[in-house]
Simulated scan of single mutants.
Amino acid sequence: MTHRNHYYLQVSDLAHARGAQPELSYGGAGPGDFAAALQEALRSPLLFQRWRAMQPEPDEVDERLGVTDQLASVSAKVVDLHTEVEVISDLPMSILRQRLNWLIGASWKLHDVRPA
């Protein structure tokens, strides 16, 4: 049985938040675009597949790193000059961290995790 969690995140400067690899990085214009990009990254294997194809030995990459959650939901809004992001998912924090880092690098902070 999986447990859904509610992750509370903050991005201080979403307009300049980008991952290290342009091929994987978020390129949107605002909180709505970012929420859609992160939700897609959690629901679909496409971002993982692009990352895996970039690896020296793609066939040796652990498939478990590509796990998805078809029911993941993401919302984001601007509050006091930063972006607050809420994620509801049964994915572990390690996978959420991976997808966030691909999309926006280290531009985010986790504030809280609660059962959903």
Rank of each mutant, 00 (worst) to 15 (best):
M1K: 06
T2F: 13
T2W: 07
T2V: 12
T2S: 11
H3T: 15
R4S: 05
R4D: 02
N5W: 14
N5I: 03
Y7T: 08
Y7C: 06
Y8S: 15
L9F: 10
Q10L: 12
Q10M: 13
V11N: 00
H16F: 10
R18H: 13
R18F: 06
R18M: 01
R18N: 00
G19P: 04
A20F: 05
P22F: 06
E23F: 05
L24H: 06
L24P: 01
S25W: 05
G27L: 04
G28V: 07
A29F: 12
G30L: 07
P31D: 13
G32M: 04
F34T: 04
A35G: 05
A36T: 10
A36G: 11
A37G: 05
L38E: 02
Q39E: 15
Q39M: 09
E40F: 08
E40V: 03
E40N: 11
A41Q: 06
L42N: 04
L42R: 08
L42C: 09
R43L: 00
P45L: 10
L47G: 00
L47Q: 05
W51I: 04
R52F: 03
A53Y: 02
M54R: 12
P56H: 08
E57H: 13
E57C: 05
P58V: 10
D59E: 14
E60G: 06
V61Q: 06
V61D: 00
E63A: 15
E63C: 01
L65W: 15
V67W: 06
D69K: 12
Q70R: 11
Q70A: 15
S73R: 14
S73L: 05
S73Q: 12
V74W: 05
V74F: 03
S75I: 06
S75Y: 02
V78D: 12
V79Q: 12
D80L: 10
D80Y: 08
D80W: 09
D80Q: 13
L81C: 10
T83A: 11
V87I: 15
V87K: 04
I88Y: 06
S89P: 02
D90L: 07
P92I: 08
I95M: 01
L96G: 01
R97I: 03
R97L: 02
R97S: 07
Q98V: 05
R99L: 02
R99S: 03
L100H: 04
N101F: 11
L103G: 04
I104A: 00
A106P: 02
A106K: 09
K109E: 15
L110N: 07
H111N: 11
H111S: 11
D112M: 08
D112V: 00
D112G: 09
V113A: 02
P115S: 15
P115F: 13
A116L: 13
A116C: 08
A116V: 10
A116Y: 13
